[in-house]
């Protein structure tokens, strides 16, 4: 399924992975567990960078803390590993300082929607020119599998030993309702659609948000009768693609179809466009 189009891929040689040149030397092996979905999202991201022909000197990747938080450090881009929950405001500062950069945030659901939830909604409201990929593995993996804002009702985690009794977020609806111009949800296994979607988000002006549902067999699956490949298989079996679905109707249900697809793709003046307008008005006023 991997699409190898990069010059780098051609010259990587037999021994290495075709995407090795996109990674920092000596950072692999990564820390992710067997069966984790984050690696394939990172690969889809790198392939999207490649097929979109994004100039590497303009590629910035910002991550928070957690399993997905490690992505930035592996990539041979301008990469920033920030504090827990704060990749979006860091990226906001970076983007405003260097608007010519293509600033991406890759982080987890706990990082972006719990501790960083306030920043997420305000970034979407501002329509700040950032591309966010949120890897949702339904729990806090790095710290050993605690309950999170996306944990399904009833799921067992180390801090919901009797089953989660809180409602989870419908992240795509949250972000869409705040004003993001591009909102999608995919499975980490669906690397082709995911890559295309990431690529598509690159071409948008404003705040884009892609939720990627990823299995976490070691910390989440194991405690919920979804060992090894079972959680991934469950996601594939239950997923249903409905492009253009109303985000209010795509909350991840306890049973039945998990709706994936591209839900929002429209235009709205971005933060930088509005800022440019303000600057132009000032310029006019001063001359």
């Amino acid at each position: 399924m991997t699409v190898l189009t990069s010059q780098a891929a051609m010259t990587a040689g037999d021994a290495g992975h075709p995407l090795d040149p996109e990674l920092r030397e000596g950072r692999i092996p990564h820390i992710w567990c067997p069966g984790c979905g984050i690696g394939s999202v990172m690969q889809a991201f790198l392939e999207a960078v490649d097929t979109f022909q994004l100039e590497r000197n303009r590629l910035a990747v910002v991550s928070g803390i957690g399993c997905t938080g490690r992505v930035a450090g592996y990539l041979k881009a301008d990469s920033f590993h920030t504090t827990h929950g704060r990749p979006i405001p860091f990226a906001t500062g970076l983007k405003l300082a260097r608007p010519e950069l293509h600033v991406n945030v890759l982080s987890g659901d706990g990082d972006l929607a719990a501790i960083g939830g306030n920043h997420l909604i305000h970034a979407a409201r501002r329509n700040i020119d950032l591309n966010v990929v949120c890897i949702n593995n339904f729990n806090y993996g790095m710290t050993g599998g605690q309950v999170g804002p996306t944990t399904p009702l009833g799921a067992k985690t180390t801090t919901s030993p009797f089953g989660c009794h809180e409602h989870p977020f419908n992240l795509v609806d949250l972000v869409a309702s705040c004003g993001a111009v591009y909102v999608a949800r995919w499975l980490s296994m669906d690397v082709r659609r995911l890559r295309r979607s990431i690529e598509e988000s690159f071409s948008k002006t404003g705040f884009t948000f892609i939720e990627v549902l990823a299995p976490c067999p070691v910390n989440f699956g194991r405690r919920n009768q979804l060992d090894e490949a079972a959680q991934g298989r469950m996601l594939v079996e239950r997923s249903e693609i409905r492009n253009g679905a109303d985000t209010r109707e795509v909350a991840i249900p306890d049973e039945g179809p998990i709706v994936c697809g591209k839900f929002v793709d429209h235009e709205r003046p971005s933060y930088l466009q509005l800022l440019e307008g303000l600057r132009a008005r000032l310029q006019e006023h001063s001359t």
Partner: peptide, 8 residues
């Protein structure tokens, strides 16, 4: 942290 991002 936005100021840290802008500084970088």
């Amino acid at each position: 942290i936005a100021i840290a991002g802008a500084s970088w």
